[in-house]
Amino acid sequence: MRELVRTNDIVLVSAVGALLDGADIDHLVLDQNMSVIEGSLGILPRRILVHDDDVRAARRLLTDAGLSHELRPDE
Results as ranks from 00 to 15, higher is better:
D24M: 11
S35I: 15
E3V: 14
S14V: 13
S68D: 10
A58Q: 06
G22P: 10
L19N: 11
S40W: 14
P45R: 02
A18S: 12
P45W: 03
G17V: 14
H51G: 00
L41Q: 09
V5M: 12
G42N: 05
G17P: 03
Q32D: 14
L71N: 00
V55L: 08
G22K: 06
E3K: 06
L61F: 05
Q32E: 14
H27W: 13
D31A: 15
S14P: 13
R47Y: 10
L20G: 05
A23F: 04
H51L: 02
D74Y: 01
I25S: 13
V55A: 04
D54G: 04
G66H: 08
N33W: 07
H51S: 00
G22N: 10
V11W: 12
R56G: 12
E75G: 15
L44G: 00
R2T: 09
D31I: 03
L62K: 00
D26Q: 01
E3D: 04
H51C: 00
I48Y: 03
L28S: 08
S68T: 15
E70F: 10
H51D: 00
G66E: 15
I48L: 05
G42D: 01
R59N: 13
V13H: 01
T63R: 03
R46P: 08
S68E: 13
G66M: 10
L4S: 10
V16Y: 12
D52K: 11
N8P: 10
R60I: 08
H69Y: 12
I10T: 08
V13I: 14
M34Q: 04
T7N: 13
T63D: 10
M1Q: 05
E70Y: 14
L20E: 05
V11E: 02
D54L: 06
A57Y: 07
L61K: 02
G17K: 00
L20C: 06
Q32K: 12
P73S: 06
Q32F: 15
T7S: 10
D52R: 02
V11S: 08
A18R: 09
L41D: 11
D26A: 11
L20I: 06
L49F: 07
N33L: 15
D52L: 14
I37R: 06
V13L: 08
